[in-house]
Design a protein around this nucleic acid. Structure first.
Lengths: 192, 192
DNA sequence: AGTATCAACAGACCGACAGTCGGTTTGTCA
DNA sequence: TGACAAACCGACTGTCGGTCTGTTGATACT
C-alpha cells in the first residue's frame, strides 16, 4: 500500500503547487478548474477525487502558504527571550513575507472572500494571532482584558503596512521605510 | 425627455436597492444575476442596459454604502475644531457604522476581492483615508513623512475593531468595550 | 398630425464553468 | 489468482454571466 498512496500524494501536491501559481497570478475567480487541469495535466476526475471542490483546493493552497509564512516567522524569532523583542522580529518577518505575491493574493485578498470572514478569521486566530496574544500577555504591558483587541489591531496594522510595501513602485526603499514605521507603531502601541 | 429619464433612474435605483439586500445576505458570489432579476422583477435587458456587468452593479451598490457611511461620519464630526477630537469622533462613528451588515459584507469582505485590491484601496483613499491624513497633518504630532503610513494603520486598526464587534455574541457590551479600546489605541498611536 | 429617433426594456440564446457520475485502470493483499 | 479499493478518466449536466436581435413608447422635429 505504498506505491498507490505515494502516487496519490504526488498528484495532490502537484495540483496544489500548480493551483498556487495560477491563483496567485489570476486570482481565485480568474482561475478556472479547467485551467488548473490543463496546467497540471491531470484529469477532472483526479482533481475531484482529491478535493471536494474548488474552494477546498484553495484551502489546501492557503494551508501551504500559512505553513511557509509560519516557518519564516519561527526562524526569525528563534533564540529570543524578550517577548517584545520577539514580537518586533516576527512583525518585521511578516512584512518581509508579504513581498511574496502568493502571500498577498492568496492570504490577504482572496482568502476572506473565498472562505468567508468567519472561517478566515478562525484560521488566522489559530495560526498567527495566538502567538501575538501570548507575547503580549507575557510582556504584561497591555492590560489583560485588552490583549485580544490589541493583538488584532497590531496584526491588522502590520498587514496594512505590508500591503503598502507590496504596492509601492520602489519596493526596496518602501520596505526599509515600512520597517522603521512598523517599529514606530509597535513602540507607540506598547508604550515604551 | 423627463418621463423616460425618470423611469430609467427609478429602475436603476430599484436594482441597486434590491442588489444591496441580496449582496449583503448571500455575498457577491452567492448572488446570481438571475436572483437579482427575479427579486427586482426586471428583465435581463434592463439590467444590462444600466450596468455593463455584475461587478459594475456591485460598484454601484458599494458607492451608495460609502455615501451613507460618509454622511454618518460627517454628521459625527460637524462643529468640531480640534483635529484629533474630530478624528476620534470619526473613528467611533465608523465603528458604529460597521454594525450594519451591509457595511461588513459589501465594504469589508467582498469589495477587495471583487474590485481588486488596487481599485479598492484607491476608493478608500478618496473617500476615507484622505480626511484621516489631513487631520493627522493638521494635528502635526506625527512626522509628516509618516502620516501616510499611520493613517493606513489607523484605519486598518479601526476596521479590525469594528469587525470584532460585528462578530461578538453580545454586540452591546462588545461595542462599549471596543469604543474604549479604540480611544486607547488612538491615544497610544498619537502619543498623548 | 405624422414621423424619425433614441433611451428603455424584453427575452431567446450562447459559451464557459463548476461539479457529477458511471465507468476503467492499477497496486495490494489474502 | 482473484477480490478489493484507491486512483483516475472524460462525457455529461445545470447554472450563470453576458450578448444580441428585436420591440415599445416618449420626445423632438417638420
Amino acid at each position: 500500500m505504498n506505491k498507490k498512496i505515494d502516487r496519490g500524494q504526488a498528484t495532490r501536491e502537484h495540483l496544489v503547487a500548480v493551483a498556487t501559481g495560477l491563483f496567485t497570478e489570476h486570482g481565485y475567480d480568474g482561475t478556472s478548474i479547467e485551467a488548473v487541469l490543463r496546467a497540471a495535466d491531470v484529469s477532472r476526475g483526479a482533481l475531484y477525487h482529491h478535493f471536494p471542490g474548488k474552494d477546498a483546493l484553495f484551502a489546501a493552497v492557503l494551508d501551504t502558504v500559512y505553513d511557509r509564512v509560519g516557518a519564516e516567522g519561527a526562524r526569525a524569532v528563534e533564540g529570543m527571550t524578550d517577548p517584545v523583542e520577539a514580537l518586533r522580529a516576527a512583525c518585521l518577518a511578516w512584512i518581509r513575507s508579504t513581498r511574496d505575491p502568493v502571500v498577498r493574493q492568496v492570504m490577504l485578498i482572496d482568502a476572506p472572500a473565498v472562505l468567508g470572514w468567519q472561517r478566515w478569521r478562525e484560521l488566522d486566530e489559530v495560526r498567527t494571532l495566538g502567538s501575538i496574544k501570548t507575547a503580549l500577555r507575557r510582556d504584561g504591558r497591555i492590560p489583560a482584558a485588552r490583549v485580544d483587541l490589541f493583538a488584532h489591531v497590531l496584526l491588522a496594522g502590520m498587514n496594512e503596512i505590508a500591503l503598502l510595501v507590496a504596492r509601492a513602485d520602489d519596493h526596496e526603499s518602501a520596505a526599509t521605510e515600512a520597517e522603521a514605521a512598523a517599529g514606530d507603531v509597535l513602540d507607540r502601541l506598547l508604550g515604551t
